[in-house]
Amino acid sequence: MDRRRVILYGGSVILGALRASLERCAELEVIPLSPPLPGAEALGALAPDVVLFDAGSAPPDPIFALLRDAPNLLLVGVDPEQADLLLWSSEHSRVVSAEDLIRVITPQRRSDRGGS
């Protein structure tokens, strides 16, 4: 069975509770990281499938640097004050014109090009 590697970054109470729950799931390998976060290269070497962090604070730059090099990375910001989960996509799209940008950000036009 392939286990998905989940990095939990931060020291908030909500991340601690999530860690306890996620560690009970046999399909997940949970790696907790506390500040300061290692650089993007060291973080990438951990080969995460998912990175969860406290979205109530500024998202760390090394996490976003992974999006370019890890096309299947799921980046999840947890904001307990707003009761939100914020998801970032690592989907890449080349934008060379205003029409290309409109196609990327407009759901109807995205489906026209085969996107989700």
Rank of each mutant, 00 (worst) to 15 (best):
P36D: 06
W88G: 04
P35L: 02
N72W: 04
D54G: 02
R109P: 06
A42N: 04
G56I: 03
R5S: 00
V50I: 15
E29T: 11
P62G: 07
P62W: 07
S97D: 04
P107W: 07
V104Q: 06
I31F: 08
P59I: 04
I7L: 09
N72S: 10
G56P: 02
G115K: 14
G77N: 03
H92G: 07
D100A: 10
D112M: 11
A98V: 13
A45S: 13
P71D: 03
L18Q: 00
G115S: 14
R5P: 01
P38F: 04
S111M: 09
R3A: 07
G56C: 08
P36M: 01
Q108V: 09
P59W: 02
L74V: 15
G114W: 11
A20F: 07
L85N: 08
S57Q: 12
S111A: 14
L33Q: 00
R19I: 04
L85M: 14
Y9H: 08
V30M: 02
T106C: 12
N72G: 10
D112N: 08
I31H: 09
G114M: 06
A65G: 03
R4T: 06
G114L: 05
A70L: 14
S34N: 09
A47V: 10
G11I: 01
T106N: 14
C25H: 12
D112P: 03
A83C: 11
C25A: 14
H92I: 03
Q108S: 11
R103T: 14
L33G: 06
L8Q: 00
L101D: 07
N72M: 05
V6S: 02
V104T: 06
I102H: 09
R103D: 14
V6T: 06
D54P: 03
D84F: 09
S116T: 14
S34R: 11
W88A: 13
G10N: 00
S93V: 13
V95F: 03
E23N: 04
R109D: 05
L43G: 00
A26V: 08
S97M: 01
D84K: 13
V76D: 03
A40E: 07
R24A: 13
V30R: 03
D69F: 09
L67Q: 07
A70E: 12
H92D: 05
D49K: 10
